[in-house]
Design a protein around this nucleic acid. Sequence first.
DNA 1: TTGTAAGCGTTATCAA
DNA 2: TTGATAACGCTTACAA
Lengths: 354, 354
Amino acid sequence: MKSPTVTQTMIARKLGVSQVTVSRAIRGLPQVNNSLRNRILAEAKRCGYVPDATNFEARMMRRRANGVRPRTDVICAIVVDEDDPFGFGGRLLRGMNEEAHQTNCEVVILTHINGALPRIVLRHQVDGMIRMLGDLEMARGVLPSPIPWVSILYEVPGADLVTVDNAAGGLTLGRLLAAKGHRRVAFIGPDTHLARERLSGLRQGLAETGGDIPAEWTFLRPFVCNDDSTKDLLDEIFTRFRMAGRTIPPFTALAAYNDFMAELAVRSALQHGLRVPEDLSITGFDGALPSRLRETLPLTTIAVPLEELGAEAVRLVHWRLEHPTALRRKVVLDGQLILGRTLSAPPPHLPEET
Amino acid sequence: MKSPTVTQTMIARKLGVSQVTVSRAIRGLPQVNNSLRNRILAEAKRCGYVPDATNFEARMMRRRANGVRPRTDVICAIVVDEDDPFGFGGRLLRGMNEEAHQTNCEVVILTHINGALPRIVLRHQVDGMIRMLGDLEMARGVLPSPIPWVSILYEVPGADLVTVDNAAGGLTLGRLLAAKGHRRVAFIGPDTHLARERLSGLRQGLAETGGDIPAEWTFLRPFVCNDDSTKDLLDEIFTRFRMAGRTIPPFTALAAYNDFMAELAVRSALQHGLRVPEDLSITGFDGALPSRLRETLPLTTIAVPLEELGAEAVRLVHWRLEHPTALRRKVVLDGQLILGRTLSAPPPHLPEET
DNA sequence: TTGTAAGCGTTATCAA
DNA sequence: TTGATAACGCTTACAA
């Protein structure tokens, strides 16, 4: 429990050299006689001298005296009180840890921010911060931070950004829908910026061949990540069109904001007697974890490269450290189209309305 | 991006007092004239002096010179590369953050250990470590750590332990099964220490009225946390007894290691034409997150107080800091019986075999 | 009640 | 190639 501090001075005394020489030998500076260096390193090893452990504070303090903010090679990821039902956090972290490992760096995580800067940030123990999930407001509270600051997926003013091209992903899906012959498509999603980006891409892709997602089939709802509200909405949609005397809705495809909603849509459609994709094509977005349904009926979706986003966030922190005064930077990655089995040509018996 | 270091000396010069007086005023030592103290604190505030931020290193270094290891009020939780499919981590963390907050402390998380001590530990930036999920082998690698070290749920040699009384929980369930009239019970679970503890409690509870979980109905398998292996096992079990010419298995209840397996068991039993609980009672263990199935058919289970475990782990770190030489300590919490609807009296038509 | 001096362990500078 | 010295910002001991 007790760590008997081993210092450079102790090593120096033992070998009858000056402490400064020990410092030089340990830091690998060239101006040390080779045999002396070896003796010093051997002795350091023998008595358990570890530069980081012995006196990190002294080293940092002295280095800062030089005017430069010394690196700690630790990056802090922030996930505020998030339930992370889709397991995004794990995949982002995998990417971050992987990249950090390759750049001789470590990632620590905070899940609770108390309005103020976290202690490890305040104390200059981390080089940069990555906001990866959770509340954006929190990010604003922490923002006047003296260190590089990267946000993943969501814009935070003043922070560099790593995100995925939602509009481009939507465009890809929209074009695919159009190519299959779909003209009238519905959309369900939360009323958020991200959802609107995906929606606008979808619309643009459909528009290229005269298709559309009309306003009356655009179902934007406040986002609650839980089955029930989405299920209710879907029930309402499918029921409404059945009550209007039709067995199938007046749109031939349903684009969902994410895979979670898409999967619920598939289930709901099946329950309401629609065949997927024969009667109704359904698309998702995210490429989340595999589920049981997905084994039998894989979604057509845009996979978001979460591991890559995490790795890129770490790279962006490093880049910002090298370019502290550079303009704010965005890194935009492309999602990848996954061809599942929920998208086909529209049913032939549906009259194309104008 | 640049933090213009404000020092006590700067404040001192500005007010024409000595730096030591500033130090005393800021630390709230009694021997400072009140009006002077106020002037100093006002100036410190004005120019943005924050003790932690300005020079944490210097303070720590000087304090360590006094022979005591100074506190950082930061605790490190370790979750190694765990997928955490049950959301345990979130609940443990909630409890830890809550308790930490109340004791003016912060929790940071590590999800990747590279064989060696994490940097923030090596650098004396945390007061203690809590192993909360994931690989135990990793814990052993990190173990010769100079700081307090608490493990949650799993024994780690040399570390203090916070756990739940698995045997007592099993006993409660066993007695409940016995009281309902069950004499022959089966068990499924992984081949782990935890599972054996729960199993032994179950057996003991059943034994009080002559019941048992015989060896041939004790299905211990290497633990893979994924649907398929468990589903296969269950299929095998239920199929075997059907192929032997019976429509219902020769046991009247199935105790599962955890709620995850219990829920799969319920599904599997239903698929094999058994009514739950009329033909087969099923019990779980954990009290994990609610699922869709659980809304319609809630499990009878033992809820593990995860938030409390997390909070207790933080308390244990603090306790250990106060009692560095005390013997290794275990804190054992009790699970709480949740009466669901998967447990009833055994079917009357089953002859009680001896 | 306030100030002076010493020292924590390191790195940078200059001299030998 | 090595050493002596100063400094980083702070806390403690002792003196005024």
